Computed example of a mutant assay.
Amino acid sequence: MDTPRAIQTLGILGAGRYGTVLARLAVSAGLRVLVARSGDPAPIAQRVRAIGATAGSTTAVIEGSDAVILALPLGNYRMLPAEALRGKLVIDAMNYWWASDGIRDDLNDPRNSTSELVQAHLEGARVVKALSHMGYQDLEDEPRPRGAAGRKAIAIAGDDPDDVAIVAALVDELGFDPVHAGPLAAGIMLEPGAEAFGADVDAAQLRTMLDGFWNSQRGIIVARARRSSGS
Rank of each mutant, 00 (worst) to 15 (best):
M1D: 11
T3Q: 14
T3V: 15
I7S: 01
I12G: 13
I12P: 14
L13Q: 07
A15D: 12
G16E: 05
G16R: 02
R17F: 07
R17W: 06
T20E: 03
V21A: 13
L22M: 11
A23Q: 07
L25F: 04
V27P: 03
A29C: 10
A29V: 08
R32N: 04
V33H: 04
V35Q: 05
A45V: 10
A45G: 12
R47G: 13
R47V: 05
R47D: 14
V48F: 07
R49G: 10
A50P: 09
A50F: 08
A50D: 15
T54P: 04
S57H: 12
T58P: 00
T59M: 10
A60N: 12
A60F: 06
E63Q: 15
A71V: 12
A71Y: 11
L72N: 12
L74D: 01
G75T: 08
G75N: 10
R78Q: 14
L80S: 07
L85Q: 01
R86Q: 10
R86I: 00
A93Y: 03
A93D: 03
A93L: 01
A93T: 04
M94C: 14
W97D: 10
W97N: 12
G102N: 09
I103L: 15
D105L: 13
D106K: 05
N108Q: 08
N108G: 04
D109Y: 00
R111T: 08
N112R: 15
T114H: 01
T114L: 02
E116Y: 03
V118G: 11
A120Y: 07
H121P: 12
G124Y: 09
R126D: 06
V127F: 06
K129D: 02
M134C: 03
Y136V: 12
E140T: 00
R144F: 00
R146M: 07
G150A: 06
R151G: 05
K152G: 13
A153W: 02
I154N: 08
G158T: 06
D160W: 01
D163H: 07
A169G: 03
L170W: 04
L170I: 04
V171F: 10
D172M: 00
G175H: 07
H180S: 15
A185C: 12
A185V: 13
G187V: 06
G187H: 06
I188G: 04
M189A: 13
L190Q: 05
L190M: 09
E191S: 04
E191L: 02
P192F: 02
A194E: 04
A196G: 10
G198N: 09
A199C: 02
D200N: 15
D202K: 10
T208L: 12
T208W: 09
M209K: 11
L210H: 06
D211S: 14
G212S: 11
G212R: 10
F213E: 11
F213Y: 14
F213W: 12
W214F: 09
S216N: 03
S216D: 02
Q217V: 11
Q217I: 03
R218I: 02
I220R: 15
I221L: 15
V222M: 08
A223Y: 04
R224E: 12
A225Y: 07
R227E: 13
